[in-house]
Nucleic acid binder design. Structure first.
Lengths: 109, 109
DNA sequence: ACTAGTACATAGTATCGCTAAGTAGCTGAT
DNA sequence: ATCAGCTACTTAGCGATACTATGTACTAGT
């Protein structure tokens, strides 16, 4: 992963994962796969699991353990009300930053 | 500053400052003022100065000390060739991330 | 003298993503 | 029966970055 991307993901990766979780619960390995499929090819597994631990501890998701046919049991994460609120705030923060940057890019000092 | 914004600025603030520097050199205090005028109202002075030290050490800017009528001498930063290259890469990284997030926001899993 | 505005510097802290290594369950090939 | 390979999760230690807090120093106005 480029160093720039690594730094830029700080703060946004959590939002990305929360966004992935809206509508459909998912488990860690699945989320990692999803991220890679969306172009974040170099996301480290450990990064995702650590993030999931964090958002669980912050109470943004509900967790349920379910058996897998193909390996160890999965931890399925579901976005809860607090998580949705956090995601809303994330989009607000993102929008603000995004607009400022777009303005900068198009020469609007 | 919201905690989300703080994290999200990691990686982007450097790009923002480099972008501010394109076309017109500026000094630290001025850059802080500019940032605040653009909505980053809670950017800490120390953050900007530390960042400037960093981009100088990375060789992305040229520095010139100029006397000020109103206080201590200013350190004026000018974007150089390496800095422009870094800025280009920043925009690439940003574009990628921005597109992915826009896709996520509009429901495109 | 004192305050306020201008201008820069830096030590210490918290957060977050990455690296690296490990544990564990299941399947298919040798 | 064993071993490789995929599935699935965990965690200690590291590096980079923004923030907090504080300090220094120059000038102008009261």
């Amino acid at each position: 992963m480029g160093k720039q991307m690594t730094e830029m993901l700080k703060g946004t990766l959590e939002g990305i994962v929360l966004a992935l979780l809206t509508g459909s619960p998912a488990y860690g390995y699945e989320i990692t796969t999803l991220l890679r499929a969306q172009g974040f090819t170099e996301i480290a597994e450990g990064t995702v699991y650590a993030l999931l631990v964090r958002i669980e501890q912050k109470g943004l998701v509900d967790v349920e353990k379910r058996p897998s046919e193909k390996g160890p049991p999965r931890k399925v994460y579901t976005l809860n009300a607090l998580g949705e609120k956090e995601l809303d705030e994330f989009w607000n923060t993102w929008s603000f930053l995004s607009e400022r940057l777009e303005q900068l890019r198009t020469g609007g000092k």
